[in-house]
């Protein structure tokens, strides 16, 4: 079984799948509307020089998010 990670652990180049979404968290609804739904996969393209935000490649588009604001998402590594 793949390790479960949070956004805090993401590093450049990782490919991950969304393993879980905790719906009560503040920004959860909006994140799902952006395409971060359960089972969606994305790749980490880059991390800003100061460590945050991170840019991900999701559903054919690219999006930058802050690590702390995605705490409701649990992700698992995909090979």
């Amino acid at each position: 079984m793949a390790d479960t990670l949070t956004f805090d652990n993401l590093k450049k180049g990782m490919r991950v799948r969304i393993a879980g979404v905790s719906e009560e968290a503040p920004f959860c609804g909006r994140l799902m509307e952006l395409g971060l739904t359960p089972d969606a996969e994305f790749t980490v393209i880059k991390v800003a020089p100061l460590g945050d935000p991170v840019e991900i490649d999701l559903r054919g588009y690219k999006l930058c998010l802050r690590r702390s604001e995605c705490s409701c998402l649990k992700v698992a590594l995909v090979d």
Partner: peptide, 10 residues
């Protein structure tokens, strides 16, 4: 009130 998540497209 509600704060927005920061989101940005390059």
């Amino acid at each position: 009130g509600r704060r927005l998540p920061f989101m940005l497209e390059l």
